[in-house]
């Protein structure tokens, strides 16, 4: 009997909704209760420093190139010792889509995503973050990493004293 199975289906549906009336709501009452985002949640972008306190960013433009919405711009400059840095660095968070491509592209792990998702502003121009807004005093998610210990030959330490580097070979000593 099709009609009996139809009625049974109706009653089953009504019973399910009846049970759900007494179930705890899954709602999180946002401004009062907040859920803790996971550590790898992608929200506000920061620029980190290496363990020695120097800026990690070498202004290579890779994040800017990876950005699908073109919200990152910077101007590179060079110190007297040859260490590159960003003269100014700007992220327009009103355009940012928080895809995390910039953090993936970064060769020095300078640009990183944080779980801080509450960056609403009254004025849209306040969402344009300059370098001083972005730079934090910390290493972010990679506490021990210092780019110049692995590369950047001869910039912060003499040649041959990097982490995976052998001392330079004296080419003349190799002569037969």
């Amino acid at each position: 009997m099709k009609i009996l199975s139809d009625i049974a289906a109706l009653v089953t549906g009504m019973w399910i909704t009846w049970k759900h009336i007494f179930r705890r709501p899954v709602t999180i009452q946002y401004p009062e209760e907040k859920r803790t985002p996971y550590p790898r949640y992608r929200a506000r972008i920061v620029l980190t420093r290496d363990p020695d306190g120097g800026e990690r960013c070498v202004a290579c433009q890779l994040c800017s190139g990876a950005c699908p919405v073109d919200c990152i711009t910077m101007q590179s400059a060079e110190d007297k010792d040859g260490r590159r840095y960003a003269e100014w660095f700007r992220i327009n968070f009103s355009r940012c889509i928080f895809c995390g491509f910039c953090a993936e592209a970064c060769p020095t792990l300078a640009i990183q995503m944080t779980p801080d998702f509450e960056i609403c502003k009254r004025d849209i121009m306040d969402l344009v973050y300059e370098k001083e807004d972005l730079l934090i005093d910390g290493c972010g998610k990679s506490p021990d990493y210092n780019y110049y210990r692995h590369a950047g030959i001869g910039v912060t330490q003499p040649r041959g004293s990097g982490a995976e580097e052998k001392p330079p070979v004296d080419v003349r000593g190799l002569l037969p």
Partner: peptide
């Protein structure tokens, strides 16, 4: 309210 409860909302 009741619709919200049915849908596990508040």
């Amino acid at each position: 309210k009741v619709l919200a409860w049915i849908q596990d909302r508040k």
